[in-house]
């Protein structure tokens, strides 16, 4: 196997919301084409990590290198333009936009994004509901839409926050298939999850987040032997 190339490197990342200090020096790396999962309990700082990478938190310090460029000082729209697609925990479907408008909203941030046809082939439900108001879609459809709209843009790094949360098992399964397809297509994925069983088969590596820091790193081949530790840790 070729030596992995670093795509995202987070070093000593601190982030605040107002006065509250959420991240206390996060350190981790995501290599090109890898699927990396951030596991942890609620409030451990996983969502904040994604938001801090995008510049959506309050004060930040430390370093975030994206494809060799320091992005910690950039405003969010410039960071996104470097090729990051973000799927927020609350899904962020716009009520004032139709399904298709939601899908077409994010501007191109890289070359070779998926075409609308490819996306509708991957998510046939969205084609049927293209004229519905975005928030009239079911929870599962909204999650598909939130995923689909960042695949069109040509983003190479996907930040996915709790995409399996609150969805029926059959939809979670479908999402798992989609993540596998995306890995095959060469996307780099940073997956924030609480659902260990969803993340375990997908992730090449996992980081356990606790109190705004990385508490452990687990490779795919270690997952079985550390399963008990993880389940206890995550409280599942």
């Amino acid at each position: 196997m070729a030596k992995p190339t670093e795509y995202l490197r987070v070093t000593g990342l601190h982030a605040f919301y107002g006065e509250s200090h959420i991240l206390h020096g996060m350190d981790f790396v995501v290599n090109r084409g890898e699927c990396v999962s951030l596991l942890g309990r609620n409030g451990a700082g996983r969502t904040t990590t994604l938001r801090a990478i995008l510049g959506l938190t309050g004060k930040r310090s430390g370093s975030v290198m994206m494809n060799g460029r320091e992005i910690i000082g950039m405003p969010p729209h410039r960071i996104a333009r470097l090729g990051i697609g973000y799927c927020p925990e609350e899904r962020g479907i716009y009520a004032s936009l139709s399904c298709e408008e939601n899908l077409l909203l994010p501007p191109q941030v890289g070359s070779a994004g998926m075409s609308l046809d490819e996306i509708y082939a991957m998510f046939p439900n969205l084609a049927e509901r293209r004229h519905s108001q975005g928030t009239r879609l079911s929870g599962g459809e909204q999650q598909m839409l939130a995923m689909a709209r960042i695949l069109r843009t040509g983003a190479k790094l996907l930040l996915l926050d709790e995409i399996s949360e609150g969805l029926a098992p059959v939809i979670v399964q479908k999402l798992g298939q989609i993540i596998r397809q995306l890995k095959e297509k060469g996307f780099t994925i940073l997956l924030v999850e609480q659902n260990f069983r969803f993340a375990a088969p997908l992730a090449d590596r996992m980081y356990v987040v606790e109190h705004g820091q990385i508490a452990a790193e687990i490779h795919q081949h270690e997952i079985e032997e550390k399963r008990e530790f993880l389940q206890e840790f995550l409280g599942v």
Partner: peptide, 25 residues
């Protein structure tokens, strides 16, 4: 229009819209 979609999106959720690469300010 697409410009209008940006406007509506930025009105509804400015942070997320900016995180998609739209220059909301």
């Amino acid at each position: 229009t697409q410009l209008g979609a940006y406007l509506r999106a930025a009105t509804e959720n400015p942070q997320l819209t900016q995180a998609f690469g739209i220059n909301v300010p």
